[in-house]
Simulated scan of single mutants.
Amino acid sequence: MEAVILAGIARRVLDELLRNPYRTIELRSARNVMAVEAALREAMRLFLTYDPFEDVSTGTEGLLAELMEAKYLETRIPWEESDEREVTICRAKVKLVGLGRVVEVERRKGVMLARVRELFPHEMDIG
């Protein structure tokens, strides 16, 4: 199965998604926001992993989720140290589908995609 990669997801978010299969995730990373846009356009599943984008490769484990909906919010940055005044936040509502392991990674139009093999719970190494 092919899925769009969301990387660098907090461990507590992954744990909460395992306990409750529905969750709204707040994304601020430009790469993850672009990934959600691509998943919406192509009607693809998401592969969520704790690992950063640079470390996602064959063997990376994570969660497979269906993207239910996504909303984009523009918000002002309250501190003066930043060179930017606004940030785009994406709130993506997802539904857990299962566990997965990356078989192959591919970049397509600036978005990372993975061919993912679904796993049984006893095959998973995520702590």
Rank of each mutant, 00 (worst) to 15 (best):
M112R: 05
G127A: 12
V13N: 09
D125Y: 12
E81Q: 08
V111T: 11
E26F: 04
R76K: 10
L18T: 08
R117N: 10
E42Y: 07
F47Q: 10
Y72H: 12
D125G: 05
S57R: 12
A38I: 00
V33C: 12
I25F: 04
L99M: 12
L73Y: 12
V56K: 03
A92N: 01
E69P: 05
A7F: 13
G98R: 00
R107P: 00
E123S: 03
R41I: 03
G59K: 06
E42D: 08
L64S: 11
A3E: 12
A35G: 11
L67V: 02
L27Q: 06
E61V: 02
V87F: 04
S57L: 00
V33H: 11
R23E: 14
A65S: 10
L6R: 10
V97P: 01
E2F: 02
H122A: 03
W79E: 11
T75L: 13
V94W: 00
M112Y: 15
E86T: 14
R101E: 07
G98C: 02
E37T: 08
V94M: 02
I9T: 02
L17G: 13
K109P: 01
D55A: 14
I77T: 09
R117Y: 06
R85L: 09
R23T: 08
V105Y: 00
R76Q: 07
M34R: 13
E104S: 07
L17H: 07
I5G: 05
L17P: 10
N32F: 07
T88E: 09
F120V: 08
M34G: 08
R45L: 05
L99Q: 02
I25N: 01
A114S: 13
R76D: 14
V97M: 01
G59Y: 05
V33P: 06
G110K: 01
R23L: 14
V97T: 06
A30I: 15
G59T: 04
